[in-house]
Design a protein around this nucleic acid. Structure first.
Lengths: 208, 208
DNA sequence: GTCTATAGGTGGATAGAC
DNA sequence: GTCTATCCACCTATAGAC
């Protein structure tokens, strides 16, 4: 179990990381906001690398619990995806970027342990989305011409990208619209014969 | 007209910015690669802020010319979008992130002149995409249930996000697949009555 | 234009008193 | 656990010789 001070440090560091990036804040920033010295912070998190890893581990834990709550409470696949989008939306409304989207941009500069945790986050999200989209496919709520996994990857990437761009305009409606349209596409992605031909063509291209 | 040395500095800075971010490289990095001293760099670009702005201005110029070339050479809207995607794909194959996607992540830490140039880049891209998608709509190549502008924003954001995530896996096929599926959605986004109802609902929600 | 030298600041991190 | 004091590496930027 982590101390209350450590949690406060993580809270502040998380917000700074989500707004300015991992390379965009320092121990001095946290220290000032918490009204302690930099040295005190090093007692709780000896290195910034360890602080960053702790941020990612906690973020995944919270995110994972949120996904479990969605599974427990939401009925249909569409409802689940709507609540998944709402998770991202609440981050945007707080003028933040998804922590992992932010770290993905800085990937090349991150210590290896953080890179590993980051991939783990994306893997877990893709797996959850793949499952939910697969459920929706089976129940007939969603109609895709491609695989649930491909669709999950597109979905995740598109949400991250929509956040990224919307932040430059400080316009969270931009994000919400993109998210809604993305979900609408899933619910309707064409059943036309033309489309099915394309799907076959795309799939065969990927096999090569 | 800019000197050859200034161009080389921009080339190196651009690659560093696209891989490590604007806050992820220093004058020392460029100096070492160019085998000159840091002081020499300041002769060409007095401050890092000005260097960053020069990067964005040149990037937009090159990108803008590429879009003009697409307009001149490509026939159909689908061909244009394919070539637009190819622009991003060539960046990915070089293990880079779109410069502007990268800067978008660091937005909060950028000097104001760079923030302005960044929004300008996204605006120009959205306008071009809006026009091309609108063309495809009129010719019947594309079938969307929402506006060309909304679709353009989703398209741009989704490409940026797909790049962002794919880079964490050093897997450019990930990006290509997402891009292909995104385009396929555009070519087919459902004509079903169910969809049209949804479109009306979405539009009315946005009016409020 | 490029160099040496350096200023002035901030980064992460540690030692040791309390 | 938190502090003061300090280290050293690195950052952007400038002065002035060549």
């Amino acid at each position: 179990m982590r101390t209350a001070v450590a949690e406060r440090i993580l809270d502040i560091a998380e917000r700074l990381a989500q707004t300015r990036g991992f390379n965009g804040f320092s121990y001095a920033d946290i220290a000032e906001e918490l009204s302690v010295t930099k040295a005190s912070l090093h007692y709780h998190f000896p290195s910034k690398s360890e602080l960053g890893r702790a941020l990612l581990v906690r973020y995944q834990l919270v995110f994972g619990r949120a996904l479990e709550a969605i599974d427990a409470e939401a009925g249909t696949a569409v409802e689940k995806l709507q609540r998944y989008i709402a998770l991202y939306d609440s981050v945007m409304r707080d003028d933040r970027m998804c922590l992992c989207g932010m770290f993905a941009a800085e990937y090349a500069t991150l210590p290896e342990p953080m890179q590993e945790e980051l991939r783990h986050f994306f893997d877990a999200n893709e797996q959850w989305l793949t499952r939910v989209i697969g459920e929706g496919k089976r129940t007939g709520e969603l109609s895709l011409w491609d695989s649930s996994e491909e669709r999950a990857r597109l979905f995740l990437g598109a949400l991250e990208g929509a956040m990224l761009v919307a932040r430059s305009y400080k316009d969270d409606r931009r994000f919400r619209r993109a998210a809604e349209h993305l979900l609408a596409d899933l619910q309707t992605a064409s059943r036309s014969p033309t489309l099915r031909r394309k799907a076959r063509a795309t799939r065969s291209r990927h096999r090569t």
